[in-house]
């Protein structure tokens, strides 16, 4: 198995009002291609921080990140942007859809950013795949919580990324809706052979994953072995 994501000795400190808080103190993690990995841990422990570092949205204070063997600290700002656009899809706890745009336009957006032709057809197809055919013209405010999260999932994978990073994707949904969204995530992951990292509070969610890691006091350790 190939290593998809490798984190080497990641440290991250926040500086706020003169106070330094070390959130991550030497995290080492390997995510293998096509696996599904859960990160669990109490609130405020640094799970989102870790996920954003993996997703190149944030630079660690120190440590190395390799994605597909590439040291991403060698990439400039613009190169990193197109790298994200090509390789990584994000799903957040809050749907984070753009409120002024329809479901279809939201799903089209990463393709438009890439500058692809045929964004509309691809996005429409993806909306059907997540079970929202017929709701293309709805604004986020005209969709239910579960539907919004499905649009967010469609948006995350419409570019066919090889990595999907999900930060408490069902954290704001009721149990039944959560099930639907999770099933969708897992089936899409299979269909498109995506490497998936899910941050979750939910033990039940974690158990669906191949590996579970626990983040505690700045360190991460495997829970399943």
């Amino acid at each position: 198995m190939n290593d998809k994501i490798v984190l080497e000795n990641i440290y991250k400190s926040y500086y706020l009002a003169g106070v330094t808080t070390e959130v991550l103190s030497g995290v080492n993690l390997k995510v293998e291609e096509n696996e599904t990995l859960a990160i669990v841990g109490p609130s405020g422990v640094g799970k989102t921080t870790l996920l954003h570092i993996m997703g190149t949205l944030m630079k660690p204070t120190s440590g190395k990140i390799y994605i597909d063997g590439l040291d991403i600290s060698t990439l400039g700002d613009d190169a990193l942007s197109s790298f994200r656009n090509k390789k990584i899809g994000f799903v957040f706890q809050f749907h984070h859809l753009l409120p002024e745009f329809t479901a279809l336009e939201n799903v089209m957006m990463p393709l438009l950013i890439r500058g692809n032709d045929g964004a509309e057809e691809k996005a429409a197809e993806m909306l059907k795949l997540v079970g929202l055919g017929g709701k293309e013209k709805h604004r986020p405010s005209q969709l239910s919580g579960g539907e919004r999260q499905r649009v967010a999932v469609a948006r995350a994978i419409v570019t066919r990324p090889s990595i999907l990073l999900a930060d408490e994707p069902t954290g704001n949904l009721d149990w039944k809706t959560s099930e639907g969204v999770l099933d969708l995530l897992f089936s899409l992951k299979e269909e498109f052979s995506i490497t998936m990292v899910i941050v979750t509070h939910n033990r039940h969610v974690a158990e669906k994953c191949g590996k579970i890691y626990l983040l505690e006091r700045g360190k991460i350790r495997c829970y399943t072995d």
Binding site: D78, S81, F90, H96, L98, P110, I113
Partner: peptide, 16 residues
């Protein structure tokens, strides 16, 4: 601000 963050996470460059 939130939209801007999302657009950046989808690969929009700072210039965009």
């Amino acid at each position: 601000i939130k939209d801007i963050g999302i657009l950046m996470s989808m690969g929009a460059r700072r210039n965009d």
